[in-house]
Design a protein around this nucleic acid. Structure first.
Lengths: 249, 249
DNA sequence: CCAAAAGTGTTAATCATACACCCATGA
DNA sequence: TCATGGGTGTATGATTAACACTTTTGG
C-alpha cells in the first residue's frame, strides 16, 4: 500500500471496521459440516452465522481468527487455518460498511470441543454447533449477512485444495488409516472412490504419507496400517504430484 | 462477521486503515513484468512499490483497486482483476497497523498507457513503469513495505492459474494467435513449450479458444489463425479440462 | 470356515511427449 | 525455390480406471 497523500497511517476518514469470519469445516458422520453460531443480537437475531468478530490493531489476521474461534468454542483450535478472501465493505451489513477477512479452518471433528448441549443449546452465550454443509440454505438454515457466499467460497476452496495438497489430513487425527483418509475425500467431494485405486494412489504419492508401523485392531476385517503426514509438514503447503484426482472434473 | 458485543458497526476502537495494493502483471519483450511506482514520500521515499491506496467506505474493494490504478496510470485498466489476499495489520508499515487487500491484474502490455518517459521519468507525479519480475529483488530494485511478499504471492497465483483457467488470454489482445498465447505461457512459467503439442492442446481444449476466421498477414512464414476467448467468458472463471500442463511440476 | 475390510496384480483406455512431416506465405 | 513459421500425424511411455484376486483379522 502506498500513501501518496498522507504522512500518518490512520487518517481517520480512511479507516473501516475490520472483522474476521471463519468457515470451520470438519467431516462428521460421513458428511462435510460447518461450525455455525446462532446470533443473539440484531441484526439477523436468531439467524445462523459464521463465527467471527473484530480484528484488534495489535494482532495478525490469523491470530484474530484463532482468538474468535477460541472465544466461541472455549478451545484453541487445532487443524489447518488459512485465509480465504476478503469481502466488503459494501452490501454486507445493514448497519454500514464493514470489511471482513474470511478464513478457512479444516479440523478433525473433535478438535473443537463445543459447549455441551449441541446446536440447539441456549444459555447466555451464542449456541454453537456443527451443521451439514449440504443442508445449509434449506430447511430453515439460512445464514446472516453474506455468509452464504462466504461458506460457498470456503467449501469450493477446500474441495479444490484436496486435489493437489495434503489438506485432507487436516480433517484426520495425528494418525489415520487410508480408509479414514478416503472417507474425507468422499465426504468433501460427495463422491465414492475405489478403495483399491485410492490406496495405491495416496501411498504411492511421494511426500504425502509416512507409515507409522502401527496398525488398527478391533474392527471387522484385516487391520489397517496407520499413517501420518510427513512430520513438520504444513498440510496446505505439501504439493501432491501427481494429484489425487476428483472424478468428473 | 458477527458483532456479539456491539450494536453499531464502527466502534471506533475497532477500525483500521484499509488499503488496496495491485500486482499488475503483463508480458512484454518475452518476459513477465510488473507495474511499480517510485515513492515520493516517506516512508521508503525513492523506493519502488506496488501501486495502491486507501479504500473509501463507499466503494467495493475491486473498485478501489481499479480507481487507484487509474489514478496512477491515467487510464481505466482493462484485463483480468481478482483479489489476491489480505496482509496485515502488523509488521507492514513503520507508521502503524494497516490492513492491505492485495489484488492481481493481468493485462496486455498496452492496456495501461503509462505517462511518457518510462520508468525513470520524474515530475510531480510518482514515476510509474514496467519492471521484469525476474529482476525485482536484485540490482537496486528492492520493494517498499512487504511488497516483495505480495509480488511473490501474485506471481505464484498467476503461474498456478494459467494451468487450469483461461487466464493467459488476459495478457493478450482481443484476438491473438496460438503462438502469442504460447509466448505468454513461456514468459510466465519461464519455460519453452513444444509449439506443435501446445497448438493441439489449446485448440483441442473445449471452452477455451474460438476461431475468428481471420488470419495474420505480413510476418514471415505461414499466416496464423486468429482466436479469441469464448465471448462473454471471464478468463479467470473458465475451467480448462484437461488443463494446460506446466512441465516438471 | 465365513464375512469383512485391507491391500496387490493386471489390463485396457486415455493422455502427454517427442518428433517426422506437410502447408502457406514473403522474399 | 528457399526460409520461416503454422499446423497435422503418429509412435511411445506414463497414468488412470476397472476389477479379479490375495491377505489378515474377528466371529
Amino acid at each position: 500500500m502506498t500513501h501518496p497523500r498522507g504522512t500518518t497511517v490512520p487518517p481517520s476518514a480512511a479507516t473501516l471496521p475490520v472483522t474476521v469470519d471463519v468457515v470451520a469445516l470438519t467431516v462428521r458422520d460421513a458428511s462435510l459440516q460447518v461450525l455455525l453460531v446462532t446470533r443473539l443480537l440484531e441484526p439477523f437475531r436468531g439467524a445462523l452465522a459464521l463465527p467471527g468478530g473484530f480484528v484488534l490493531p495489535d494482532e495478525t489476521l490469523d491470530d484474530a481468527a484463532r482468538r474468535e474461534l477460541a472465544e466461541e468454542t472455549g478451545v484453541a483450535p487445532t487443524g489447518h487455518l488459512e485465509q480465504l478472501r476478503t469481502y466488503g465493505p459494501l452490501g454486507r451489513d445493514p448497519r454500514g460498511p464493514v470489511v471482513s477477512v474470511a478464513h478457512l479452518l479444516l479440523a478433525p471433528a473433535d478438535a473443537l470441543r463445543l459447549p455441551p448441549g449441541g446446536p440447539a443449546a441456549g444459555g447466555d452465550a451464542e449456541a454453537v454447533g456443527w451443521y451439514p454443509v449440504a443442508r445449509v440454505g434449506g430447511s430453515g438454515l439460512d445464514l446472516a449477512f453474506d455468509h452464504a457466499d462466504v461458506l460457498r467460497d470456503g467449501v469450493e476452496r477446500a474441495r479444490a485444495k484436496l486435489e493437489y495438497s495434503a489438506l485432507a489430513t487436516a480433517f484426520c487425527g495425528r494418525e489415520f488409516t487410508v480408509a479414514e483418509l478416503r472417507a474425507v475425500y468422499e465426504a468433501v467431494w460427495g463422491v465414492t472412490l475405489d478403495p483399491r485405486n485410492f490406496h495405491r494412489k495416496v501411498t504411492g504419492t511421494p511426500g504425502f504419507l509416512v507409515e507409522t508401523g502401527r496398525t488398527t485392531s478391533g474392527g471387522a476385517g484385516r487391520p489397517a496400517a496407520l499413517y501420518r503426514l510427513a512430520p513438520d509438514a504444513d498440510p496446505g503447503a505439501v504439493v501432491l504430484n501427481p494429484p489425487v484426482m476428483r472424478p468428473g472434473a
